[in-house]
Structures are given as C-alpha cells and as structure tokens.
Design a protein around this nucleic acid. Structure first.
Lengths: 135, 135
DNA sequence: GTGCTTGCAAATCGTTTGCAATAGC
DNA sequence: GCTATTGCAAACGATTTGCAAGCAC
C-alpha cells in the first residue's frame, strides 16, 4: 500500500506536505524529530513551515499513522511503525534502535488491566551505550 | 533508613532543601513534577527557588536516588522508587499508577544485549483511561 | 464559495544557564 | 577562608497558538 492510500485509509486527506512527511518516515526509519523532518524536506518543499510539520505529526499520531517516541527528554521522535516495539536510546550518540516484540507479554500490563484501567498504548524504552559507542 | 542517611550513602551532601525534596518524594509517591514539588515545599521553605528543585532532582537522578519518568510528553515526573517498574498514565486525569515487575523479563532486552548494546535503564509506560475516569 | 490546510510571527512554558549571594565545614 | 549550594533573573528551545492567506472540491 502506498502513502496516498495509507492516508486515505486513516481518514486523512492527502496533501503534498502530508505525503512527503509520511514518505520520509518510511524512507528514514531512524525516528526523526520534527526538526529533522523539516530540515530534510525544506529543500524540496521550500514553502514548508515547521508548524505544518508539527501539525501533521500530531495528526498522524492521533490517527495511528505514526507514533510519538518520548524516550529522549528534550525532543519528541517519530516512528512510522505504529506497532508496539521496544526502543533503545544510546546516551552517547543519541541513536535510537528498535526491537520487535513477537507475542511476548509486557510486564505490568495484566496488573493494570486487573485494576480496571483501559490500556491504549504501550511503550518500552531502554537507555545505555550502543555497540558502536563502546569502541 | 532515613532520608539523611540515604543521601549520605549516595554521596550527596544533605541540605535542608535536598532533605525536604527527598522526603516529599517518599511522602507523596504520586510522581510529582518539579513544579508540584516547588509549590508544595515553598510555604515551609519560603526562600526555596525552582532552580534548586531542578538542580536537586537532576542530582538525585544522576545518583540513583530518584528516577525521572518521561511518560508525559510535556513535563518530567519524578519517582523516589528507583527500581524498574511499569507506569500507567491516565490521559484524562493525568494520574500515574505503578505496577511492580517481579522477576519478569522485559521484551526486547535480550535482543538489545545480543546486539552488543549496554543497557543501563529500562522504562515501561502504558497510557489509557484509568478506572476512576471511566465512570 | 465553503471548509480545510498551510505557514508566518508571536506566545508559551518547562527547563537551563550565568552569576552573585550565602551557608557550612 | 574555601568550596559547594542556593536562588534570582535572564536565556533557551521545543512546541503551540492566533490568524490571515491559499488551496481543493
């Protein structure tokens, strides 16, 4: 399914800006920030404003086209993969790595459900020093 | 062990402000923000400044006396319990609930370790609607 | 032409920084 | 007295808001 149809299927009206941002998220699954996306797309869409990038990412997040990663305390990162998966942040280089969760249960989930809470989102964050930064 | 000894054992020089903040974290394990702590302690310590609260919480976090909870995208919350445990944020009332993890493995951890990354911190966040807000 | 989208500029707000005053051994 | 801590005011920076202009059906 292409970006255009993905937006349609999530009830989002496609536009040049929205398509470009979504395609960027798929092309560069490095969990970019709003700023990084803006800087990357700005040359090809000179009239693009940062406000639009923020608006679009918020829209994507609300409509489950992307998810916001708040592993970094200073900036929000975005991920075009909306599945529940673990993220590892290297505190030295700032890079974020992924790990899929294949059918594993996440600790605490059952306890919260048993208590009567409704869970809509789950996030798993690890922090440390990545392989490359240990050299 | 009292607050004074806890600071000593973590190589932090006790002071009126530091003791008050640590005791607040223990007395009110509701994951307060720097602002909430400042507002709560300000009446009893009129000269207290918000800078000191921020400085102290950062010091506590670095020395593992407290942990920073970044589940809320707008503000940092703090927890006097430094063990790895799950947090649930109610998107309606903003309350944060705890769940302990008793010996359970956290998905993704092994994969990151296998890849050669060194994990120092782990966070588990859930978001949804809490029991009270469903009524 | 109506309603949604865009984008500039200004505002917001949690947090950090510079630096002088203060406190504690 | 020397060093670490405190706290005010100003700076900072990511994100949001107000609003006017533009676009699409």
């Amino acid at each position: 399914m292409n970006s255009y149809d993905i937006l349609i299927s999530h009830d989002i009206k496609p536009s040049v800006q929205r398509l470009a941002i979504l395609e960027y998220l798929y092309a560069y699954p490095t969990h970019p920030t709003a700023d990084e996306i803006y800087n990357a797309l700005s040359p090809s869409i000179p009239t693009l404003s940062k406000t639009t990038v923020y608006n679009t990412l918020k829209l994507f997040t609300l409509n489950k086209v992307a998810q916001a990663i708040t592993i970094d305390e200073h900036t929000e990162h975005f991920d075009g993969d909306t599945s529940v998966h673990a993220h590892f942040l290297c505190k030295k280089c700032g890079k974020i790595y992924d790990a899929t969760i294949k059918g594993e249960t996440i600790p605490g989930e059952d306890k919260f459900k048993d208590e009567g809470h409704i869970i809509n989102e789950a996030y798993l964050y690890y922090k440390g020093i990545c392989k490359d930064c240990q050299k």
